[in-house]
Amino acid sequence: MAESGAMQSMSAELTMQAVPNGGIVSALGKRMFGGESFFVSRFTNTTSRTLRVTIAQDIPGDIVEMPLHHGEEVVLQRGAYLGHAGDVQLKAAWAGFISWFSGEGLVHLRARSESTGTVYFGAYGAIIKRRIEEELKVDDGHLVAYDPALTLKVSLSGGLFASVFGGEGFVTRVIGTGDVYIQTRSVRGLAAWLNPKFR
């Protein structure tokens, strides 16, 4: 399964079907709030040979291949999902006003596997995987995915003065023990460089 539009090339013998992203209601939710598309593409190999499909994201950056086993789960931020294989359920989950406040949307995706599956997600720039023991503060727009055992809170990066004038604004406090994936660039940062170039 892959995000619609993610397919770059594939063996001609593969069958590709557009299916709603995990049921009509759930797909609608993902489309409206999660920044994901309503349809996803399902690639099926009906032959007896091994066939190949290549999927890629729209923006230049790393892709993480994450195996999920027996009840393991990962939370993906808006737009990060790329595809999955095997047994993976995707659920649009309420991310809370905190997430919306930091510009990440009201809904995020939870990918979960009851048996064995792989989920693929991407980012703009490189992805840094970081183990959190207590707390990590992540700048707006740099959080890609995280372990659902972690909780998120939004706070100012420093004091009021530091946050407004220091250029860091709001940060997301990621609290608990688990892995977090952060991207080294942000699309908003690129836009901030580009905007003054428009006359």
């Binding site: 840094i128 990590l136 503060k137 004091g159 004038f165 250029g167």
Partner: peptide, 17 residues
């Protein structure tokens, strides 16, 4: 550091501008 360069930091890091 220059303003706006921080991507992530430890929870107990203090920031002064």
């Amino acid at each position: 550091s220059e303003g706006g360069a921080m991507i992530a930091m430890s929870g107990d890091m203090r920031v002064a501008t």
